[in-house]
């Protein structure tokens, strides 16, 4: 019996074998592997399929699922699987842009609001509450009216929705960090506001904000796909996850795989992001505790 066996087990598990322990959870490993695959599809789609997503093949129109065409082909004989693979980059671009907008703008607003406090804080938080008052999809649609359709527009329209929640989270983190002894001590040593912000407040407040942002990637993928499904994304023939589902709808009763399979890819990706984000958040809180 060693002395360590008297100590709480979690404290050691969380540090030493954190990564190994995570990988032992089969669902986490699966989710991580799927996301790695998605990243490959976005970076180098040619590795995952030998078909050209734009190549029209009149001899193989509306082909069913087969070894040659995993997801079948569409009304122009284009390989649906290839279109999903090549569509990844557009969909992911919009989702990442959305999360970055929410993260950067939201963090700045929250930081300002929490650090300056007082009247500025009250006014900013009222604005944030107003943003939260409009259902996400409705706000996105209003923004798209102004921006017009397109991948970048969708990214912006979805990103604006997460600004408010990130700002709130950042503000509450800043408020709690600000009161801690080391920040007070730094102020006592005569360090200026910017130094304290950069040296203490931001590093300590950003952890949970980043975890929330990872979770937001899943929500953003869903939102982007929804808007693209409604026909507000990149114009055809550019493939996008959501618009592929919409394109398949026209052939729905007989060629159901044309829309269901791209839809399943979206669902599995969102599920994987949520899984990974949740495990990361839990292991983070285990580390702190």
């Amino acid at each position: 019996m060693t002395i360590t066996s008297f100590l709480p087990r979690t404290a050691f598990a969380a540090r030493g074998g954190a990564r190994r322990r995570l990988m032992r959870q089969p669902t986490f490993a699966l989710a991580a592997a799927w996301l790695a695959l998605v990243l490959v599809a976005a970076a180098a789609p040619g590795l995952l399929t030998r078909y050209d997503p734009y190549a029209i093949d009149e001899d193989h129109v509306l082909a069913p699922m087969s070894a040659a065409h995993w997801f079948g082909t569409d009304q122009f004989g284009r390989d649906t699987y290839a279109r999903v693979v090549y569509g990844t980059v557009e969909s992911l671009k919009a989702a990442v842009l959305a999360v970055l907008i929410g993260l950067v703008v939201g963090s700045l607003i929250g930081l300002l609001s929490g650090f300056v406090a007082g009247k500025v804080d009250t006014a900013v938080m009222r604005l944030v509450d107003t943003m939260l008052a409009i259902p996400a999809l409705i706000l996105s649609l209003a923004i798209l009216t102004t921006l017009g359709p397109g991948t970048i527009s969708i990214g912006i329209a979805i990103g604006v929705n997460s600004i408010a929640s990130i700002a709130r989270l950042m503000r509450s983190e800043v408020l709690s960090v600000k009161e801690r002894a080391y920040v007070e001590a730094s102020r006592f040593f005569g360090h200026g506001m910017w130094y304290r912000l950069g040296r203490h407040v931001i590093p300590n407040a950003s952890g949970s904000v980043l975890t929330a942002a990872i979770l937001d990637i899943g929500t953003a993928i869903l939102g982007v796909a929804s808007l693209s499904f409604l026909g507000l994304g990149a114009p055809p023939p550019t493939p996008e996850w959501g618009s592929l589902v919409a394109e398949g709808r026209g052939f729905f009763p007989t060629q159901w795989w044309m829309s269901i399979l791209p839809g399943a890819v979206i669902a599995v990706s969102v599920l994987s992001v949520y899984k990974v984000a949740r495990v990361l958040r839990n292991s983070r809180s285990a580390n702190i505790a």
Binding site: G242, P253, I260, I266, A267, V270, L271, Y274
Partner: peptide, 29 residues
């Protein structure tokens, strides 16, 4: 529940449409 939170609404809708309108014929598509 986490599964249903991740499911895009349009996918659920299409699956329900396929099942109830086209397979079972309970509703008009």
């Amino acid at each position: 529940p986490p599964l249903f939170v991740s499911l895009p609404i349009f996918l659920t809708a299409l699956l329900l449409l396929q099942l109830f309108a086209f397979k079972l014929g309970l509703i008009e598509p």
